[in-house]
């Protein structure tokens, strides 16, 4: 249910895998929410040609597993799948797929939102944008895994 891959992402395959993992657990699965992050055609007004994603694969998989544990801690019984693409991506292609499975609908949306916020904070993945007129690495959050405030902020956003 966790992957860093050069292959195109399949939300259907990830959904099937996540649903199967909770079908017979507790109340069972009554809700599946999915999120796809896709390559946008513009960034701050500049036309994007394509993106390249790079990851520290082994550490990214550990981080995704940590996010699963955090989600299960806050939403007992929830299951979470995360797949991140690396390599060159065209506009419209999915860079990240997230699927959350829970017994009821409200929690499925929350788990999905929590996972993407945490990925943005701590996943060792980098985006390199190639524009019509240049290129740039995108640099977002400075990873601090001890930062409990960041985790609390992700929870707050997820439950807003």
């Amino acid at each position: 249910m966790l992957a860093v891959t050069r292959a195109p992402l399949s939300v259907d395959a990830l959904t099937a895998e996540v649903e199967a993992s909770v079908r017979t657990r507790g109340e069972g699965c009554g809700a599946l929410a999915s999120f796809l992050g896709v390559v946008r055609a513009t960034h701050q007004g500049r036309a994007v040609r394509y993106l390249e994603y790079e990851a520290f694969d082994a550490l990214a998989l550990k981080v995704f597993a940590q996010i699963q544990v955090e989600a299960a801690d806050r939403w007992p019984g929830a299951a979470l799948g995360i797949a991140h693409r690396v390599g060159r991506l065209a506009i419209g292609e999915a860079s990240v797929a997230i699927v959350a499975a829970t017994a009821h609908r409200a929690e499925a949306f929350q788990v999905c939102r929590y996972a993407i916020e945490r990925i943005k904070q701590i996943a060792p993945v980098w985006k390199h944008e190639f524009f019509e007129d240049g290129e740039a690495w995108v640099e977002g959050a400075i990873v601090n895994p001890d930062d409990h405030a960041a985790r609390a902020r992700a929870l707050e956003i997820a439950c807003a």
């Binding site: 550490l59 550990k62 996943a123 060792p124 690495w137 001890d146």
Partner: peptide, 24 residues
């Protein structure tokens, strides 16, 4: 494993340095 900059390293360790992240 994520580590603080103050953490000791040993001979043969693998030390990765990460710029600010931008996944998702």
């Amino acid at each position: 494993n994520f580590s603080r900059m103050s953490q000791p390293v040993a001979d043969g360790d693998d030390v990765a340095f990460l710029p600010p992240v931008s996944g998702g």
